[in-house]
Design a protein around this nucleic acid. Sequence first.
RNA 1: GUGGGUGUAGCUCAGUUGGCAGAGCGCCAGGUUGUGGUCCUGGAUGUCGAGGGUUCAAGUCCCUUCACUCACCCCA
Length: 419
Amino acid sequence: MSFQAPKGVPEYYPPRSATFLAVRAAFAEAARRAGYAYIETPVFEETELFARGVGESTDVVTKEMYTFADRGGRSVTLRPEFTAGVLRSVLEHNLHTGQLPVKLWTTGPAFRYERPQAGRYRQLQQFDVEAIGTEDPAVDAETIAIAWEGYQALGLTRVRLLLNTLGCRQCRPAYRTALQEFLRGLDLDEATRERIEINPLRVLDDKRPEVRERVANAPLITDHLCASCKAHHDRVRELLADLGIPWEDTPRLVRGLDYYSRTTYEFDHPLLGAQSGIGGGGRYDGLSEDIGGPPLPGIGFAVGVDRIMLAIEAEGAEVAVPPRCEVYGVPLGEVAARRMFSLVGELRRAGVAADMAYGGKGLKGAMKGADRSGAAYAVILGERDLEAGTAQVKDMAGGEQAAVPLEEIVETLKGRLSR
RNA sequence: GUGGGUGUAGCUCAGUUGGCAGAGCGCCAGGUUGUGGUCCUGGAUGUCGAGGGUUCAAGUCCCUUCACUCACCCCA
């Protein structure tokens, strides 16, 4: 076969795909319980939305977007993240004119044209939560708690929450100037010197040891916060403490998208290698105005489903998945196969996960299928059984087998499975 | 965009100074014609990534190319 999946696009197929769905379900359940409703937004949007929403100076916009002209000549872009599209949809459909905050979740693929590596893909799967229309720090803590609950539900024990604040339009400019003045005095390479002028905060986040050393004494945002940002940040931390969620104050944590303000956070996993961020989010109080909307504060996060899969596998966490098959039918001969087909249908309508051997397999092959299906029970139906009006119900784990009248099979199996 | 590593069976990988293409797992069949797993026996499957070169002879050496992968950068 000469075709292969596009570069940097992970695929999930059985049995791993069951875990993929379970990851989404764990976060969806946490969001639902917190009063968040589902929103479905487009996978692509007008290019301009992302350019203005994500920020012209970000790497995501300048070199990572999947942008193309459609047949009508419009420039469209596959979403590199969710927030801009969700906010656009909220504004377009006037969801913000009702009671606030508007609390939403969504999930699906996002796209960034990057060189792939472990945990970094060109098509990445995210689970996204947004709370739009309030500055209440309780909602900052609530979104963090939803992500935290998701990780807990999946059995992940090594997740770290890194917390920071980036200040607001009042206090950040002065800090930014102070930081730039400090950084300009350092001996740094060309690319880094350019970043000092474009986005100086990101220099703090550099991974190279020699750079880390040089910026060790850089001024920190936490020393330059205005009174309201400081109060906001303190309250978020108090509420996290109330919920029993542990965090690490990380004053150097910077996020790559321009719209963040005040609360920013990242979830990190120590077993993942270079791409260790398994989720991240923050407040975006100016974003609505950036894309032409009214003043409308918001906060949200996205978690990376691909990286969570890697974290689950790295930790060896056992994620519960629903059974694929509880009862497996083993028919012998064509007449029995036809009867078995309707019996399997009855079982399914009764809520039992049921499958059967197809293709006229022999007993041995069909039993092998029963074994591999993971079913707790096999139902064997041959000519002798048909004549007697019964089928053999076999307990796959113990091996015991007994004849059960065909009319009683569904009830018998439902009873045994519920134990 | 920059740098490193790796391409051999469905999967994970051995393959010596250049000399018959291999193992484990998986798959199929039989042992057991109405019974799976465990066990035993047997079997099938290869463009050695691709193209070119050196050589009596290339999986092995040389060149080119493609793919995958890890890291920088950046981010979920």
